[in-house]
């Protein structure tokens, strides 16, 4: 009788102790939490899809954005995220091995497997932080137009990206810093880019080898590179210099892309971080022999569910942010 009705012959079903779903109260609640959390993440990812479909022709191409690997120079799209994915799947495996050892009441093995899981989680969160800082710092720099569009630069002869520093002119100019004693109490200097708009525009006009690459995706799934004449016309729209990405400006393209990147990977990274914290607590409980005295390791199983869920979410984030 594998149905929802309890098969116990217990007369008083109101007395508690029935488990129609064959799972304990704690495990069931963990599942309910995970279902609601899955819906939260789905909401995020679906609204990402909404914004992307809205700007389907100008959305940033992920391989042009995430091209770095720590300690290596050059253009290596996807490799580092693939490594992160593997680390997370691997830590999921050590977790499921810990749960399995828990079923067999093997305390030492649970300790070791949980330890490896925590290490894997820490490597993942660290990689995530590195990914964020690389994204925030930016690499080549770009111009933003009055309409909020991004103009990037490529070299005409090689087709490689051109950094602002490669061609911008150095125009000496004077500006006065906003001091705290001037202006109102909430006003401050704010963030300054390394070059001004004039320096970039002058340098661009003087250097015929530089072309503008717009956000528009052409039929070959590449970003459109303008001709020199079109570029000279387009550069007149420039309004700001953008270096790196934040919630307001994004040198890689649509600012919504940066917003969703921060929110979705941030929300996921926060889950991983809290997962590591919970794992550490349970890890010490296992060492202290709490579950040995309790007679079962169901707590390890419950945090295991949470940990696998974090991995499950990452599988989707990986697909929709980096692959599709």
């Amino acid at each position: 009788m594998d149905s929802t009705v309890t098969t116990a012959t217990n007369e008083s079903v109101w007395g508690g102790g029935n488990q129609p779903l064959g799972a304990s109260y704690g495990k069931l609640m963990m599942w309910f939490f995970l279902v609601s959390d899955a819906l939260t993440f789905s909401g995020f990812l679906a609204s990402y899809g909404f914004s992307r479909f809205k700007f389907i022709e100008t959305w940033p191409i992920a391989e042009l954005v995430f091209t770095h690997v720590p300690f290596f120079h050059g253009d290596y799209p996807l490799y580092y995220v693939a490594f992160m994915t593997f680390i997370l799947i691997m830590s999921s495996v050590t977790m499921v091995l810990a749960v399995d050892a828990g079923h067999k009441m093997q305390q030492t093995r649970v300790i070791w497997y949980l330890f490896l899981t925590i290490i894997g989680g820490a490597i993942f969160v660290g990689s995530q932080a590195w990914e964020w800082s690389t994204f925030i710092r930016g690499d080549y720099g770009a111009l933003e137009t009055k309409g909020g569009r991004i103009l990037q630069f490529v070299k005409a002869d090689t087709g490689e990206r051109a950094a602002l520093a490669d061609f911008a002119k150095n125009i000496p100019s004077e500006r006065e810093d906003l001091q705290r004693d001037k202006g109102l109490w909430f006003q401050s200097e704010g963030y300054l880019t390394s070059r001004s708009v004039d320096e970039v525009v002058e340098g661009f006009v003087a250097n015929p080898n530089i072309l503008i690459r717009t956000e528009t995706i052409n039929d070959d799934n590449h970003k459109t590179v303008l001709t020199r004449e079109e570029s000279l016309k387009r550069i007149k729209d420039a309004a700001h210099v953008v270096e790196g990405a934040n919630l307001i400006h994004n040198e890689y393209g649509s600012r919504l892309f940066a917003d969703f990147f921060f929110f979705i990977t941030g929300f996921h990274g926060f889950h991983v971080f809290s997962g590591v914290m919970i794992n550490i607590i349970i890890f010490f409980n296992v060492i202290l022999g709490t579950y040995e005295r309790r007679g079962h390791y169901e707590m390890v199983e419950k945090i295991g569910l949470y940990w696998h869920f974090v991995d499950l979410v990452w599988v989707f984030v990986f697909t929709f942010f980096y692959l599709v």
């Binding site: 594998d2 129609p20 064959g22 799972a23 599942w31 999921s92 495996v93 499921v96 599988v315």
Partner: peptide, 22 residues
Amino acid sequence: TLVKAYYIAWDFMHLRDEKNSL
């Protein structure tokens, strides 16, 4: 992705061993 999600849920989260109703 859905294939991967299936195996993570079914084997790592051992949904395969749970009751159909759950």
